[in-house]
Write a protein that binds this DNA or RNA. Structure first.
Lengths: 199, 199
DNA sequence: TCATTTTTGTGCGAGATCGTACAAAAATAC
DNA sequence: GTATTTTTGTACGATCTCGCACAAAAATGA
C-alpha cells in the first residue's frame, strides 16, 4: 500500500499542507482502534498532522469525518472483492482467499489486532445514530452481496446461503481478533467453515 | 424475569434506598444501548435512580461498574446455557433453541435492537483496555464452550467445529440486529446454518 | 505591487464528564 | 438518650471535548 500521495494544487489561495486521502487514512485508523466515542479531535489532529480547524474545513464535524472514514473503508473493501471477481478460483480456493485475507487484515492494528472498523466500532454507535446504522447496514450488505456473487461464480449450489454463513463468520473473526484470539485459532475456525461449506 | 428485588438490611448505618442487582441491571442495559464510552455517569445515575456518589460507593468507578455489568451478563448467559444442558434435544432442536433464543434477545432494547453487550460494546474497548479484553475473551470462550458441550450431548460428530461455527454466526446475528436487519432475515440465516450443520 | 482567496494555527468559550468532599439523614449499638 | 456507622444528596473542582473566531500566512490574479 502506498502511503505517500501528492497534494493536488487547488487554484487560488494558500495551498494545503496535507493530503486529504492520507489524513482520512490516519483518522480511520484511529477510529478503528479506539472506537468513535473514544477518539477525540485532539487525537485525530495529532494522528493526521492536521489541526482541528483544518479538519473541520476539510471534512466537517467529527461524525462527518467518521462517516467519510467508513465510506473509504467501504470503497477499499469493494475494490478488494472486485479483484476476486472474474478470477477463476474453485470454491475452496475462493473461500481460503476470503478468510485468510480477512484474518490478516483483522490482525493488523496500532495497538494489537483491531478487526473491522464497521463491525467493531460502527455497530456500537448504530443503535443511537441512524446515519451510522445506515452505513453499517450498507457495509454488511456489500460484503454479503459480493461473497454471494463470488460463490455463484465458483459454482456454489446455494450462493446466498453460503455467502450469509461465510460473511457471518468473518464478522465473528473480527470480534475474536479484537478479543485477542491468536491467528492459529482464527484460521482453524476458517478451515472448519470452509470444510462444511464444501460438503 | 422478575424486576422487583428486596433490599437486604446491611446491619449498622443508614439503609440503602436501592437494590444493587436492579441498579446493575439498569446500568448494563444503558451500557448495552450506548456503548461504554457514550454512557455518562449522569445517565447511569438517572437510569438506576442512584446518584453518583452512591454508585461509586457501591461499585467503584465507571469501568468497575461496566465490568460488573459484563460479569452479570456472563452469569445470566451461563445459566441460560446450563438450562439447556441435560435437556434431551436432538441437534436440530438444540440449534433452533440456541439461535431463536439469541435472536429474540438481540432484538430487545430500549432504542431498537441492541444485540449483545459483549460483542457490540466490549469489543470496541477491547483493543485499548486489557481488562475488558479479558472479559470479552472469557465471554466468547464461555459461549463456545457451552455450545460445544451441547453439540456433543446432541450427538454431533464434531462438537468443537460445530460450536465454533454456530457461536460465530450468533456473534454476527448480534451485529446484524444492531444494524437494523429484520427478524425474518436473521431467522433465515439461522435456518441456513442449521441446515448446513445437520448435513 | 496590490487585491483576493484559501489555508493555517493559536486561542477561546461553552458545556460535558469524572470523581470526590462534606454535611445532613437514617439506621443500629450501648 | 447518645454515640457510631453507613448512605444520601448537593456541590464543587479539575479536566476534557467540541466547534469556531480571528489574525497571520501563503498562494494566485490583475
Amino acid at each position: 500500500m502506498r502511503t505517500d500521495t501528492k497534494i493536488a494544487p487547488r487554484g487560488r489561495g494558500r495551498p494545503r499542507k496535507f493530503d486529504e486521502e492520507a489524513a482520512l487514512r490516519a483518522a480511520s485508523q484511529r477510529f478503528r482502534t479506539l472506537g468513535y466515542a473514544n477518539t477525540s479531535l485532539d487525537e485525530l489532529a495529532a494522528a493526521t498532522g492536521v489541526n482541528r480547524p483544518s479538519l473541520y474545513a476539510a471534512f466537517g464535524d467529527k461524525k462527518a469525518l467518521y462517516l467519510a472514514g467508513l465510506a473509504r473503508t467501504h470503497e477499499v473493501v469493494d475494490l478488494t472483492f472486485a479483484a476476486l471477481h472474474g478470477v477463476n478460483y474453485p470454491r475452496e480456493k475462493m473461500l481460503k482467499a476470503l478468510f485468510i485475507g480477512a484474518i490478516e487484515g483483522f490482525l493488523t492494528g496500532e495497538h494489537g489486532p483491531s478487526g473491522c472498523i464497521a463491525v467493531n466500532t460502527a455497530a456500537t454507535e448504530a443503535v443511537m445514530d441512524a446515519d451510522i446504522r445506515t452505513a453499517l447496514a450498507a457495509f454488511v450488505a456489500l460484503q454479503d452481496g459480493w461473497i454471494e456473487k463470488l460463490m455463484a461464480q465458483a459454482g456454489s449450489a446455494d450462493p446466498r446461503g453460503d455467502a450469509q454463513i461465510a460473511s457471518s463468520v468473518i464478522h465473528s473473526l473480527s470480534t475474536r481478533a479484537r478479543a485477542g484470539t491468536p491467528r492459529a485459532e482464527l484460521i482453524a475456525i476458517a478451515k472448519k467453515v470452509t470444510a462444511l461449506l464444501l460438503t
